[in-house]
Structure formats: structure tokens, C-alpha cells
């Protein structure tokens, strides 16, 4: 499973403050720990609400340069504002890049789609449209169809698209775990070349022992066909389960990845 490290996100106040005061050391540190923990991509998010868009753009340019100074891992540019994404791509060096995210909403599809196509970027596509997050599998699939049709007409291939089935809190609606899992299954069955990705933490909102709930859901999602997870790679138990799930569903020939991780002390009970 591909791991997208989620820790550099301005919705976390400490991170937002570090970005605001251009704290290079802080960002370098949080980048390195995520890479060492096994992140394949580093997500970068500067938020948008505080200050002007110009400030957000400057923040994003600084962040991209700062993170790339200490790692060769590709970045996930996390924004729904085309101007901020463009600024990040301008500052970016390297072939592989991921944009997070687009939806089936026409204005986002028509602004972010062409950007991703032009830069040959991987693109996270949320299974939702203008009416919000559909609460059924069928309607989430319809939004995926809309997105895929439009993006391929812009010259993107299914391989570049990472569909996010979306996760709603199980505490509010007890059917939502299955809705997400079945959406993953159906996406993989319908578009075998396309990828799937999701964030883990939403499922456990409003419940006790959240990390344990997240980890259990990760295993189920892996079986349903999840290709990538957005998580905190510093959670060594979650990372152990990522490696174990790869092994258990036949993605780890001769269990090499698992044993290697074990020898490195990365499998934590």
C-alpha cells in the first residue's frame, strides 16, 4: 500500500504556526520523520482561510522548497484552490507529483483537471459532487464515472486517478463503514486501472479509542482493494498493519517486505 504522510497540514495549529513563521527546522524535522517511518508521498497543505490567497501561495511555495530540500520523495499538493496548486507546481522539482484533490463539481473539475493533465500529475478524486457526499454506494460511483469521463477527455489516463471513496463517521451513521468499503470494491471492479486512496481518521470521529478503530478499518479497506492511505506514518502500529495487510492479500511475494520491516524493528506489536 502506498503511504501518504499527512502530518504537514495547516489544519493542525502547530503546523500552521510553523509555516507562518517559516520555521525551516520544524518542517524539515516533520518531513524526515515521516520519510523514515515509511511515507511514500509527503502531503503538504497550507490551508486557505487565514490571510490572503497571495499569502497562501507564498506559504505553499516556501513549503514545497523546504520539504524538497530534505527528501526526494514525491509530494502530494493538498489544496482545492487552483492558484495555490499552480504555485506549488511551479516551485516543484521532480517527475512524480500528486494533487489532492478534485471532485465532480464542474468548477473544480474544469479548473484542477487541466492542471493535472498538463503536469502529468497523479490526481486524488473525491467521490462527491455539488450536492455533497452521497450516502449511497451507487451515487458515489456515479460521481466517479463523471470524473473519469471528464478527466480522460482531458488526456489523463485511469492510472493517474486515485479515487477517494470518502469516509463518514461511523458514530453518526452505522452503515457508513460498509458504504466506504463497498465503494472501494466497486471502483476497483469497474475501473481496474484506476487507484483508490482514503484518509483513515474520519471513520472514528466521535468515538473512544480512535486509533484502534482506524487501524481495524485500514485492514478491511486493504482487503476491499485500497491502494493508498493518507495517514500519520509516525503511528508505528498502523504502519505495521500496512505491511501485514500487504502480505496477507498477496502483495508481498515471499513475505519479503514484512520480514525486512521486522528485521529493521518496524513491526510493532
Amino acid at each position: 500500500m502506498l503511504i501518504i504522510g499527512e502530518c504537514i497540514n495547516a489544519s493542525n495549529r502547530t503546523v500552521a504556526e510553523a509555516i507562518a513563521r517559516r520555521d525551516r527546522e520544524f518542517i524539515e524535522g516533520i518531513t524526515k520523520t515521516q520519510v523514515e517511518a515509511g511515507a511514500d508521498f509527503i502531503d503538504v497543505n497550507v490551508g486557505a482561510g487565514q490571510g490572503t490567497q497571495g499569502q497562501a501561495i507564498e506559504g505553499m511555495e516556501w513549503l514545497v522548497k523546504t520539504v524538497q530540500a530534505v527528501t526526494d520523495k514525491p509530494l502530494t499538493i493538498d489544496s482545492d484552490v487552483p492558484g495555490i496548486i499552480e504555485a506549488a507546481l511551479r516551485s516543484y522539482r521532480g517527475e512524480t507529483v500528486m494533487i489532492n484533490s478534485v471532485t465532480a463539481e464542474p468548477e473544480r473539475l474544469e479548473s484542477i483537471g487541466p492542471l493535472a493533465a498538463r503536469h502529468k500529475a497523479l490526481l486524488v478524486a473525491l467521490a462527491m459532487g455539488s450536492e455533497g457526499i452521497p450516502d449511497t454506494v451507487e451515487r458515489r460511483l456515479e460521481t466517479c464515472e463523471t470524473i473519469l469521463t471528464r478527466l480522460t477527455s482531458m488526456g489523463m489516463s485511469a492510472e493517474q486517478i486515485y479515487f477517494d471513496p470518502l469516509v463518514l463517521p461511523i458514530s453518526v451513521d452505522s452503515r457508513q463503514g460498509l458504504v466506504t468499503l463497498k465503494t472501494i470494491e466497486r471502483i476497483k471492479a469497474r475501473y481496474p486501472a484506476a487507484k483508490t486512496v482514503m484518509g483513515l481518521s474520519n471513520i472514528s470521529f466521535g468515538l473512544p479509542s480512535r486509533k484502534l478503530v482506524n487501524r481495524a478499518f485500514l485492514l478491511m479497506a486493504a482487503y476491499a482493494g485500497l491502494d493508498a492511505a493518507i495517514l500519520d506514518p509516525r503511528d508505528d502500529k498502523a504502519m505495521s498493519l500496512v505491511r501485514i495487510s500487504d502480505m496477507l492479500i498477496g502483495k508481498d511475494a515471499l513475505c519479503k517486505g514484512y520480514i525486512k520491516a521486522y528485521r529493521q524493528g518496524k513491526i510493532v506489536d
Binding site: S171, V172, G206, L207
Partner: peptide
């Protein structure tokens, strides 16, 4: 002491 499902 209570969680969201309790409250709902």
C-alpha cells in the same frame, strides 16, 4: 463520559 452515538 458519553460519545456521539450516546448523545444521538
Amino acid at each position: 463520559e458519553y460519545f456521539i452515538p450516546d448523545m444521538l
